[in-house]
Amino acid sequence: MMSRRVPSRGFAAGLAIVLAAAVVAATTGFLGVMPASSQAQVVQVRAAPSVPRDDPFAAFWNNVQPVDVALSAQNITRPMGGGTVAAVQLRAAHDGKRLYILSEWSDATQDAAIDTTTSFTDAAAVEFPAAGTTRIPSFCMGDPGAGVNIWHWKAAWQRDVDSGFATNRARYANMQVDLYPQDGDTTFQTGLAAGNPLSAQKHGSPVENLVAAQFGTLTNADVQDVGGVGRWKDGRWRVLFVRSLAGAEGSPSFAPGGKTNAAFAVWNGSDGQRDGIKSVSQFVDLQISGEKIVRKPSSFAPAIIAFAGIVGGLAVIAVFGVFAERRKRV
Protein backbone atom coordinates (compact mmCIF):
# COMPACT_ATOMS: atom_id res chain seq x y z
CA MET A 1 0.00 0.00 0.00
CA MET A 2 0.91 3.61 -0.29
CA SER A 3 2.96 5.15 2.43
CA ARG A 4 4.51 8.53 2.92
CA ARG A 5 8.03 9.55 3.54
CA VAL A 6 7.87 11.99 6.38
CA PRO A 7 10.53 13.75 8.36
CA SER A 8 11.48 12.02 11.59
CA ARG A 9 9.19 13.13 14.35
CA GLY A 10 9.23 13.11 18.11
CA PHE A 11 12.07 14.26 20.26
CA ALA A 12 14.22 15.74 17.52
CA ALA A 13 11.35 17.72 16.09
CA GLY A 14 10.31 18.97 19.53
CA LEU A 15 13.85 20.01 20.28
CA ALA A 16 14.08 21.76 16.92
CA ILE A 17 10.94 23.76 17.67
CA VAL A 18 12.20 24.80 21.10
CA LEU A 19 15.57 25.81 19.64
CA ALA A 20 13.93 27.60 16.74
CA ALA A 21 11.63 29.47 19.09
CA ALA A 22 14.65 30.50 21.16
CA VAL A 23 16.45 31.68 18.05
CA VAL A 24 13.46 33.73 16.95
CA ALA A 25 13.04 35.23 20.40
CA ALA A 26 16.73 36.16 20.41
CA THR A 27 16.64 37.55 16.88
CA THR A 28 13.51 39.61 17.29
CA GLY A 29 14.92 40.95 20.59
CA PHE A 30 18.15 41.82 18.83
CA LEU A 31 16.32 43.59 16.03
CA GLY A 32 14.42 45.62 18.59
CA VAL A 33 11.09 44.15 17.51
CA MET A 34 8.99 43.62 20.60
CA PRO A 35 6.88 40.59 19.96
CA ALA A 36 3.54 40.44 21.73
CA SER A 37 4.25 38.66 24.96
CA SER A 38 1.57 36.89 26.91
CA GLN A 39 2.57 38.81 30.02
CA ALA A 40 2.46 42.18 28.37
CA GLN A 41 -0.60 42.04 26.21
CA VAL A 42 -4.14 41.37 27.23
CA VAL A 43 -7.15 41.57 24.99
CA GLN A 44 -10.25 42.09 27.11
CA VAL A 45 -13.38 40.29 25.99
CA ARG A 46 -16.24 42.14 27.65
CA ALA A 47 -19.94 41.40 27.47
CA ALA A 48 -22.63 43.08 25.43
CA PRO A 49 -26.31 42.21 25.19
CA SER A 50 -25.93 41.71 21.46
CA VAL A 51 -23.09 41.95 18.98
CA PRO A 52 -23.66 42.59 15.25
CA ARG A 53 -22.67 39.43 13.40
CA ASP A 54 -22.75 40.57 9.80
CA ASP A 55 -20.85 43.82 9.70
CA PRO A 56 -17.30 44.07 10.97
CA PHE A 57 -17.44 47.84 10.44
CA ALA A 58 -20.57 48.23 12.65
CA ALA A 59 -20.54 51.21 15.01
CA PHE A 60 -20.75 48.75 17.89
CA TRP A 61 -16.99 48.20 17.66
CA ASN A 62 -16.33 51.88 18.36
CA ASN A 63 -17.17 51.07 21.95
CA VAL A 64 -14.41 48.50 22.21
CA GLN A 65 -10.88 49.61 22.97
CA PRO A 66 -8.56 48.15 20.27
CA VAL A 67 -5.27 46.47 21.09
CA ASP A 68 -2.42 46.53 18.57
CA VAL A 69 -0.58 43.24 18.41
CA ALA A 70 2.76 43.21 16.60
CA LEU A 71 3.32 40.72 13.79
CA SER A 72 6.57 39.51 12.31
CA ALA A 73 7.71 37.21 9.53
CA GLN A 74 7.50 33.49 10.10
CA ASN A 75 11.17 32.47 10.22
CA ILE A 76 11.09 29.12 11.93
CA THR A 77 10.13 26.58 9.33
CA ARG A 78 9.99 26.41 5.56
CA PRO A 79 8.46 28.06 3.66
CA MET A 80 9.45 31.23 5.54
CA GLY A 81 8.44 34.77 4.90
CA GLY A 82 5.75 37.31 5.47
CA GLY A 83 6.30 40.15 7.90
CA THR A 84 4.79 42.64 5.46
CA VAL A 85 2.00 43.54 7.89
CA ALA A 86 3.38 45.10 11.06
CA ALA A 87 0.38 44.66 13.34
CA VAL A 88 -3.21 43.59 13.70
CA GLN A 89 -5.65 45.70 15.63
CA LEU A 90 -7.80 43.48 17.81
CA ARG A 91 -11.17 43.90 19.42
CA ALA A 92 -13.27 41.25 21.06
CA ALA A 93 -16.63 40.83 22.75
CA HIS A 94 -19.07 38.19 23.90
CA ASP A 95 -22.82 38.11 24.35
CA GLY A 96 -22.94 35.38 26.95
CA LYS A 97 -23.37 32.79 24.22
CA ARG A 98 -20.81 33.57 21.54
CA LEU A 99 -17.25 34.85 21.33
CA TYR A 100 -16.53 37.56 18.76
CA ILE A 101 -13.00 38.43 17.69
CA LEU A 102 -12.42 41.27 15.28
CA SER A 103 -9.05 41.42 13.56
CA GLU A 104 -8.14 44.47 11.50
CA TRP A 105 -5.09 45.27 9.42
CA SER A 106 -4.07 47.35 6.45
CA ASP A 107 -3.80 45.86 2.99
CA ALA A 108 -3.86 47.99 -0.13
CA THR A 109 -5.38 45.23 -2.29
CA GLN A 110 -8.26 42.82 -1.88
CA ASP A 111 -7.03 39.44 -3.07
CA ALA A 112 -9.96 37.08 -3.14
CA ALA A 113 -9.29 34.93 -6.20
CA ILE A 114 -7.59 31.53 -6.34
CA ASP A 115 -8.17 31.12 -10.04
CA THR A 116 -4.69 31.01 -11.59
CA THR A 117 -1.36 29.40 -10.78
CA THR A 118 -0.10 32.68 -9.40
CA SER A 119 -3.12 33.99 -7.48
CA PHE A 120 -3.32 33.58 -3.72
CA THR A 121 -5.95 34.72 -1.29
CA ASP A 122 -5.73 37.23 1.56
CA ALA A 123 -6.40 35.46 4.82
CA ALA A 124 -6.42 35.84 8.60
CA ALA A 125 -6.25 33.37 11.44
CA VAL A 126 -6.65 33.08 15.18
CA GLU A 127 -4.97 30.27 17.05
CA PHE A 128 -5.85 28.85 20.49
CA PRO A 129 -4.46 25.99 22.53
CA ALA A 130 -6.45 22.88 21.64
CA ALA A 131 -9.01 21.51 24.05
CA GLY A 132 -7.52 19.51 26.89
CA THR A 133 -3.95 20.81 26.57
CA THR A 134 -2.26 20.84 29.97
CA ARG A 135 0.42 23.32 28.96
CA ILE A 136 0.80 26.17 26.54
CA PRO A 137 1.57 24.73 23.10
CA SER A 138 4.20 26.15 20.82
CA PHE A 139 2.59 29.18 19.20
CA CYS A 140 4.05 27.89 15.93
CA MET A 141 1.32 25.44 14.92
CA GLY A 142 1.42 23.63 18.26
CA ASP A 143 3.61 20.66 19.09
CA PRO A 144 3.02 16.92 19.37
CA GLY A 145 2.29 17.13 23.12
CA ALA A 146 0.00 20.16 22.91
CA GLY A 147 -2.00 20.93 19.82
CA VAL A 148 -3.73 24.07 18.64
CA ASN A 149 -7.10 25.02 17.23
CA ILE A 150 -6.99 27.47 14.32
CA TRP A 151 -9.77 29.55 12.82
CA HIS A 152 -8.79 30.48 9.29
CA TRP A 153 -10.70 33.09 7.31
CA LYS A 154 -10.01 33.32 3.59
CA ALA A 155 -10.99 36.21 1.35
CA ALA A 156 -11.60 33.63 -1.40
CA TRP A 157 -14.08 31.73 0.77
CA GLN A 158 -15.74 35.02 1.64
CA ARG A 159 -16.19 35.61 -2.06
CA ASP A 160 -17.55 32.07 -2.49
CA VAL A 161 -20.07 32.70 0.28
CA ASP A 162 -21.04 36.13 -1.04
CA SER A 163 -21.19 35.51 -4.77
CA GLY A 164 -20.58 31.83 -5.48
CA PHE A 165 -17.56 29.64 -6.23
CA ALA A 166 -15.33 31.19 -8.86
CA THR A 167 -12.82 29.44 -11.11
CA ASN A 168 -10.67 30.71 -13.95
CA ARG A 169 -13.84 30.75 -16.08
CA ALA A 170 -14.76 34.03 -14.39
CA ARG A 171 -11.41 35.50 -15.40
CA TYR A 172 -11.41 34.06 -18.91
CA ALA A 173 -15.04 34.47 -19.87
CA ASN A 174 -14.33 33.80 -23.55
CA MET A 175 -12.59 30.49 -22.97
CA GLN A 176 -13.87 28.03 -25.55
CA VAL A 177 -14.05 24.33 -24.84
CA ASP A 178 -15.75 21.83 -27.16
CA LEU A 179 -16.94 19.60 -24.39
CA TYR A 180 -16.02 18.18 -21.05
CA PRO A 181 -16.68 14.44 -21.29
CA GLN A 182 -18.31 13.07 -18.15
CA ASP A 183 -19.08 16.61 -17.06
CA GLY A 184 -20.93 16.60 -13.78
CA ASP A 185 -19.23 13.43 -12.56
CA THR A 186 -17.27 14.66 -9.56
CA THR A 187 -14.88 11.69 -9.85
CA PHE A 188 -12.91 13.85 -12.24
CA GLN A 189 -12.86 16.87 -9.92
CA THR A 190 -10.17 14.97 -8.09
CA GLY A 191 -9.72 17.12 -5.00
CA LEU A 192 -13.46 17.22 -4.53
CA ALA A 193 -13.80 13.49 -5.04
CA ALA A 194 -11.04 12.93 -2.48
CA GLY A 195 -13.03 14.94 0.05
CA ASN A 196 -10.56 17.81 0.24
CA PRO A 197 -12.29 20.67 2.09
CA LEU A 198 -10.31 23.17 0.00
CA SER A 199 -12.04 21.85 -3.13
CA ALA A 200 -15.55 22.22 -1.71
CA GLN A 201 -17.58 24.64 -3.78
CA LYS A 202 -19.99 25.56 -1.01
CA HIS A 203 -19.00 26.77 2.43
CA GLY A 204 -21.28 27.35 5.38
CA SER A 205 -18.82 29.97 6.54
CA PRO A 206 -15.77 31.82 5.20
CA VAL A 207 -13.89 30.58 8.26
CA GLU A 208 -12.33 27.12 8.30
CA ASN A 209 -11.91 25.36 11.64
CA LEU A 210 -8.58 23.51 11.82
CA VAL A 211 -6.38 21.59 14.20
CA ALA A 212 -2.60 21.15 14.20
CA ALA A 213 0.03 19.62 16.43
CA GLN A 214 3.27 20.49 14.64
CA PHE A 215 4.34 22.06 11.38
CA GLY A 216 2.83 20.31 8.41
CA THR A 217 -0.01 18.70 10.38
CA LEU A 218 -2.74 21.30 9.79
CA THR A 219 -6.00 19.42 9.29
CA ASN A 220 -9.61 20.42 8.80
CA ALA A 221 -11.45 19.81 12.10
CA ASP A 222 -14.37 17.38 12.33
CA VAL A 223 -16.75 20.12 13.39
CA GLN A 224 -17.01 23.29 11.30
CA ASP A 225 -18.68 25.65 13.74
CA VAL A 226 -16.77 28.90 13.34
CA GLY A 227 -18.66 31.66 11.60
CA GLY A 228 -17.57 35.07 10.56
CA VAL A 229 -17.36 37.72 7.95
CA GLY A 230 -14.58 39.80 6.45
CA ARG A 231 -14.94 43.15 4.72
CA TRP A 232 -12.40 45.46 3.08
CA LYS A 233 -12.80 49.22 3.20
CA ASP A 234 -10.36 51.99 2.36
CA GLY A 235 -7.28 49.80 2.47
CA ARG A 236 -8.21 47.92 5.66
CA TRP A 237 -9.52 44.43 6.19
CA ARG A 238 -11.78 43.77 9.14
CA VAL A 239 -12.50 40.14 9.80
CA LEU A 240 -14.94 39.05 12.46
CA PHE A 241 -14.63 35.51 13.85
CA VAL A 242 -17.65 34.13 15.71
CA ARG A 243 -18.07 30.90 17.62
CA SER A 244 -20.18 29.74 20.54
CA LEU A 245 -18.35 30.18 23.84
CA ALA A 246 -18.93 26.52 24.63
CA GLY A 247 -17.15 24.72 21.82
CA ALA A 248 -18.21 21.45 20.27
CA GLU A 249 -16.63 18.33 21.70
CA GLY A 250 -12.91 18.43 21.09
CA SER A 251 -12.82 22.21 20.60
CA PRO A 252 -11.58 24.64 23.22
CA SER A 253 -14.39 26.26 25.20
CA PHE A 254 -14.44 29.72 26.70
CA ALA A 255 -16.36 31.14 29.65
CA PRO A 256 -16.67 34.50 31.34
CA GLY A 257 -13.99 34.73 34.02
CA GLY A 258 -11.68 32.53 32.01
CA LYS A 259 -8.50 33.31 30.16
CA THR A 260 -6.97 31.75 27.07
CA ASN A 261 -4.00 32.28 24.80
CA ALA A 262 -4.54 33.46 21.30
CA ALA A 263 -2.13 34.16 18.46
CA PHE A 264 -2.90 35.94 15.20
CA ALA A 265 -1.72 35.77 11.63
CA VAL A 266 -2.49 37.45 8.33
CA TRP A 267 -1.55 36.67 4.74
CA ASN A 268 -1.28 39.06 1.81
CA GLY A 269 -2.27 37.09 -1.28
CA SER A 270 -0.79 39.47 -3.83
CA ASP A 271 2.62 38.97 -2.18
CA GLY A 272 2.35 35.24 -2.85
CA GLN A 273 1.78 34.64 0.85
CA ARG A 274 0.32 31.29 1.85
CA ASP A 275 1.09 28.62 4.42
CA GLY A 276 4.18 29.57 6.47
CA ILE A 277 4.73 32.73 4.43
CA LYS A 278 2.76 34.94 6.79
CA SER A 279 2.89 37.73 9.34
CA VAL A 280 2.36 36.16 12.73
CA SER A 281 2.10 37.18 16.40
CA GLN A 282 3.03 35.30 19.51
CA PHE A 283 0.39 34.36 22.08
CA VAL A 284 -1.50 37.16 23.79
CA ASP A 285 -4.02 36.68 26.59
CA LEU A 286 -7.71 36.76 25.86
CA GLN A 287 -9.37 37.71 29.14
CA ILE A 288 -13.06 36.85 29.01
CA SER A 289 -14.87 38.90 31.61
CA GLY A 290 -18.40 39.41 32.86
CA GLU A 291 -17.89 43.17 32.73
CA LYS A 292 -20.13 45.03 30.31
CA ILE A 293 -18.98 47.09 27.37
CA VAL A 294 -19.76 50.69 28.23
CA ARG A 295 -21.37 52.55 25.36
CA LYS A 296 -19.38 55.63 24.66
CA PRO A 297 -21.56 58.70 24.24
CA SER A 298 -22.09 59.21 20.56
CA SER A 299 -19.56 61.59 19.12
CA PHE A 300 -22.44 63.29 17.30
CA ALA A 301 -24.22 64.24 20.53
CA PRO A 302 -22.61 67.65 21.16
CA ALA A 303 -23.13 68.58 17.54
CA ILE A 304 -26.76 67.54 17.69
CA ILE A 305 -27.31 69.59 20.86
CA ALA A 306 -25.65 72.60 19.30
CA PHE A 307 -27.66 72.16 16.13
CA ALA A 308 -30.91 71.80 18.06
CA GLY A 309 -30.04 74.92 20.05
CA ILE A 310 -29.45 76.97 16.93
CA VAL A 311 -32.60 75.72 15.21
CA GLY A 312 -34.60 76.36 18.41
CA GLY A 313 -33.16 79.85 18.78
CA LEU A 314 -33.95 80.71 15.18
CA ALA A 315 -37.51 79.43 15.63
CA VAL A 316 -38.05 81.62 18.70
CA ILE A 317 -36.73 84.64 16.83
CA ALA A 318 -38.97 83.86 13.87
CA VAL A 319 -42.11 83.45 15.99
CA PHE A 320 -41.26 86.63 17.85
CA GLY A 321 -40.81 88.42 14.52
CA VAL A 322 -44.21 87.21 13.21
CA PHE A 323 -45.96 88.45 16.35
CA ALA A 324 -44.20 91.81 16.10
CA GLU A 325 -45.28 92.14 12.46
CA ARG A 326 -48.88 91.32 13.33
CA ARG A 327 -48.89 93.88 16.05
CA LYS A 328 -47.69 96.52 13.58
CA ARG A 329 -50.58 95.69 11.25
CA VAL A 330 -53.20 95.81 13.96
Binding site: M2, L218, D275
Partner: peptide, 23 residues
Protein backbone atom coordinates in the same frame (compact mmCIF):
# COMPACT_ATOMS: atom_id res chain seq x y z
CA UNK B 1 5.43 21.84 3.58
CA UNK B 2 2.59 19.44 4.37
CA UNK B 3 4.24 16.25 3.15
CA UNK B 4 1.23 15.84 0.91
CA UNK B 5 3.48 14.46 -1.84
CA UNK B 6 4.85 10.97 -1.51
CA UNK B 7 6.93 8.48 -3.43
CA UNK B 8 5.46 5.02 -3.40
CA UNK B 9 7.78 2.37 -1.94
CA UNK B 10 6.50 -0.28 -4.35
CA UNK B 11 7.23 1.50 -7.65
CA UNK B 12 8.74 4.92 -6.96
CA UNK B 13 5.76 6.72 -8.48
CA UNK B 14 5.44 10.25 -7.09
CA UNK B 15 1.90 11.31 -6.23
CA UNK B 16 0.14 14.30 -4.73
CA UNK B 17 -2.32 13.34 -1.99
CA UNK B 18 -5.38 15.10 -3.35
CA UNK B 19 -6.98 15.04 0.07
CA UNK B 20 -4.12 16.68 1.99
CA UNK B 21 -2.95 19.21 -0.60
CA UNK B 22 -3.92 22.75 0.41
CA UNK B 23 -3.04 24.37 -2.88
Amino acid sequence: PRNAIYKRPEDGIVLIDEQRCRG
